Computed example of a mutant assay.
Amino acid sequence: MKMHRDILVIEDDEDDREILQEIFRELGYKNKIVFFADSTEALEYIRRPEVNPFIIISDINMPKLGGFELRNIILDEELLSDKDIPYIFISNAQDEASIRDANKLSIQGYIHKSADYNNYREKIKNLIDYWKDNVGSFKNKKK
């Protein structure tokens, strides 16, 4: 089932990756969590035909290829858009322009990185639980 496939996390900041690794370890999901510090490497990974992740969680501000640009590529490339992968942004940005720009990219969520570990953990848990509960519902409605 898709809900047990890999969760991709694209985050260039090492400290943020470590926090997310700890959160996912604590939450204990059966999914393999695949981390990328470089969004261009993540793009090459998801372009592989056999790769069909459960969800992508991506930072916005990254060197080489930012989160907005990555999302645009996924939407524009038929092979990638056909994979129908929920795409969630995580960011420190809370300004209206960033949120508006993110929403224009047909994302499925936007999480503000919280300085409060427990709050951040709860946001991640709610996100994953939501998609685990609803991934089949959305697929069935498309048919």
Results as ranks from 00 to 15, higher is better:
Asp15Thr: 15
Leu127Val: 03
Asp76His: 04
Tyr117Gln: 04
Leu43Met: 11
Ala102Pro: 12
Gln21Cys: 05
Phe35Met: 14
Gly109Gln: 10
Ile85Gln: 10
Asn61Val: 04
Glu50Phe: 13
Ile19Pro: 13
Asn118Trp: 13
Asn140Ala: 10
Pro63Val: 08
Arg47Phe: 07
Trp131Leu: 06
Ser58Leu: 00
Asn140Met: 15
Asp101Gly: 03
Ile56Leu: 03
Asp76Thr: 01
Ala97Val: 15
Glu69Thr: 13
Asp59Ala: 03
Glu14Cys: 01
Glu18Pro: 00
Asp76Gln: 01
Ala42Cys: 04
Ser98Thr: 13
Ser91Tyr: 04
Leu20His: 07
Lys125Tyr: 13
Ser81Gln: 09
Asp12Thr: 13
Lys125Cys: 06
Leu27Gly: 04
Glu69Met: 07
Gln108Cys: 11
Ile23Phe: 07
Asp129Arg: 08
Lys32Asp: 10
Asn31Gln: 11
Ala97Thr: 14
Leu70Asn: 05
Tyr117Glu: 02
Asp15Leu: 12
Ala115Phe: 11
Leu43Cys: 09
Ile10Phe: 00
Ile99Lys: 15
Tyr120Leu: 15
Ile74Gln: 02
Phe24Ile: 11
His112Lys: 13
Ile57Gly: 05
Phe138Val: 09
Leu80Phe: 01
Lys104Gln: 13
Ile46Phe: 03
Tyr120Pro: 12
Val51Ser: 03
Ile57Lys: 00
Arg100Gly: 06
Ile107Asn: 05
Asn126Phe: 10
Ser91Thr: 14
Asp12Lys: 07
Arg71Cys: 15
Arg25Thr: 08
Ala42Val: 03
Leu70Ser: 00
Ile88Ser: 04
Tyr130Ser: 10
Thr40Asn: 04
Asn103Glu: 13
Gly67Asn: 09
His112Pro: 15
Asn72His: 01
Pro86Trp: 11
His112Val: 15
Glu18Val: 01
Asn72Tyr: 00
Asp15Arg: 10
Ile55Trp: 06
Asp12His: 11
Asp82Gln: 13
Ala102Val: 03
Tyr29Met: 06
Arg47Thr: 02
Asp129Thr: 08
Phe35His: 02
Ile128Cys: 12
Asp38His: 06
Pro86Met: 15
Pro86Ile: 13
Phe24Thr: 11
Gly28Asn: 10
Phe138Arg: 08
Ser39Gln: 05
Asp12Phe: 08
Ser81Met: 10
Leu80Arg: 00
Lys125Arg: 11
Asn118Val: 12
Phe68Lys: 10
Ser106Leu: 08
Lys83Pro: 13
Gly67Lys: 11
Gly109Phe: 02
Glu96Ser: 15
Ile60Asp: 08
Ser39Arg: 11
Ala42Tyr: 00
Asp133Asn: 06
Arg47Asn: 07
Ala97Glu: 15
Asp15Ala: 14
Val51Ala: 09
Asn134Cys: 02
Lys125Trp: 03
Arg100Thr: 14
Ala102Lys: 09
Glu77Asn: 04
Asp15His: 12
Glu26Asp: 06
Ser81Phe: 12
Ile33His: 06
Tyr117Ala: 07
Lys32Gly: 05
Gly66Ser: 14
